[in-house]
Simulated scan of single mutants.
Amino acid sequence: MCSYRRRLLVAPALLCVLVGLVARPADAAGDGKGTSGHNGTGTGGDSTLSAQVLKLYEDAAVATGRYEAGRKRAEVQRAKALRVEALLDRERREIGVMHKDLGRIARAQYRNGGGVPLTAQIILATSPEQLMRGQHVFSQANLAVANSIEKSRRAEVRLAGDEARAAAAWQVLEKRNSELADLKQGIEDKLEEARWELQGKADVSVAAGSCPGAVRLDQKETDSTSAWVTPVARYELSAAFGSGGKRWAKRHTGQDFAVPIGTPVRAVGDGRVVKVACAGAFGMEVVVRHTDGYYTQYAHLASVAVDQDERVDTGQWIGQSGTTGNSTGPHLHFEVRVTPELGSGVDPVPWLSERGAPLG
Score class of each variant (00 low, 15 high):
residue 4 Y to G: 03
residue 6 R to C: 03
residue 10 V to P: 02
residue 10 V to D: 01
residue 11 A to G: 08
residue 13 A to T: 10
residue 15 L to R: 10
residue 15 L to M: 09
residue 16 C to N: 03
residue 16 C to V: 02
residue 17 V to T: 07
residue 22 V to T: 12
residue 24 R to H: 06
residue 26 A to C: 07
residue 30 G to S: 05
residue 34 G to R: 11
residue 35 T to W: 05
residue 36 S to R: 02
residue 50 S to E: 00
residue 51 A to G: 13
residue 52 Q to R: 15
residue 53 V to M: 03
residue 53 V to N: 07
residue 55 K to T: 14
residue 58 E to F: 11
residue 63 A to P: 07
residue 67 Y to G: 02
residue 70 G to Q: 01
residue 71 R to K: 06
residue 76 V to F: 14
residue 77 Q to F: 03
residue 81 A to W: 02
residue 86 A to D: 15
residue 87 L to P: 01
residue 91 E to P: 02
residue 92 R to W: 04
residue 92 R to F: 11
residue 97 V to W: 13
residue 98 M to Y: 13
residue 101 D to W: 15
residue 102 L to I: 15
residue 103 G to Q: 15
residue 105 I to T: 14
residue 105 I to P: 11
residue 110 Y to A: 15
residue 114 G to Y: 06
residue 117 P to F: 10
residue 118 L to N: 09
residue 121 Q to V: 13
residue 126 T to K: 15
residue 127 S to K: 03
residue 128 P to S: 12
residue 129 E to P: 00
residue 133 R to M: 07
residue 133 R to S: 14
residue 136 H to S: 15
residue 137 V to K: 12
residue 137 V to T: 05
residue 138 F to W: 13
residue 139 S to E: 11
residue 147 N to F: 08
residue 148 S to D: 04
residue 148 S to E: 10
residue 150 E to Q: 10
residue 150 E to D: 15
residue 151 K to G: 14
residue 152 S to M: 08
residue 152 S to C: 09
residue 155 A to G: 15
residue 155 A to R: 14
residue 160 A to T: 04
residue 162 D to Q: 12
residue 163 E to K: 15
residue 164 A to C: 03
residue 168 A to I: 02
residue 170 W to H: 12
residue 171 Q to C: 07
residue 173 L to G: 11
residue 173 L to M: 10
residue 173 L to V: 06
residue 181 A to I: 00
residue 182 D to S: 14
residue 186 G to W: 11
residue 189 D to K: 14
residue 193 E to A: 15
residue 196 W to E: 12
residue 197 E to D: 14
residue 199 Q to Y: 12
residue 199 Q to C: 08
residue 202 A to H: 04
residue 204 V to K: 14
residue 206 V to F: 11
residue 210 S to E: 06
residue 210 S to D: 07
residue 212 P to W: 04
residue 216 R to D: 00
residue 218 D to L: 12
residue 218 D to Q: 15
residue 219 Q to E: 04
residue 220 K to P: 08
residue 221 E to H: 07
residue 222 T to R: 09
residue 225 T to N: 14
residue 231 P to E: 10
residue 234 R to P: 01
residue 239 A to S: 11
residue 239 A to R: 07
residue 249 A to L: 01
residue 256 D to I: 09
residue 257 F to C: 06
residue 258 A to W: 02
residue 258 A to N: 10
residue 260 P to W: 05
residue 261 I to T: 04
residue 262 G to E: 03
residue 265 V to S: 01
residue 265 V to P: 05
residue 267 A to W: 02
residue 268 V to W: 12
residue 279 A to V: 10
residue 279 A to C: 04
residue 280 G to E: 01
residue 281 A to M: 02
residue 281 A to W: 01
residue 281 A to S: 12
residue 288 V to H: 09
residue 289 R to T: 01
residue 300 H to F: 00
residue 301 L to N: 13
residue 303 S to N: 01
residue 305 A to R: 00
residue 308 Q to D: 09
residue 308 Q to A: 05
residue 310 E to M: 02
residue 312 V to Q: 10
residue 314 T to Y: 05
residue 317 W to Q: 11
residue 318 I to Y: 08
residue 318 I to H: 13
residue 319 G to T: 00
residue 321 S to E: 08
residue 322 G to A: 00
residue 323 T to Q: 13
residue 323 T to P: 03
residue 325 G to L: 00
residue 326 N to S: 09
residue 333 H to S: 05
residue 334 F to M: 07
residue 334 F to E: 06
residue 340 P to N: 09
residue 341 E to W: 14
residue 342 L to C: 01
residue 357 A to M: 04
residue 357 A to S: 10
residue 360 G to R: 09
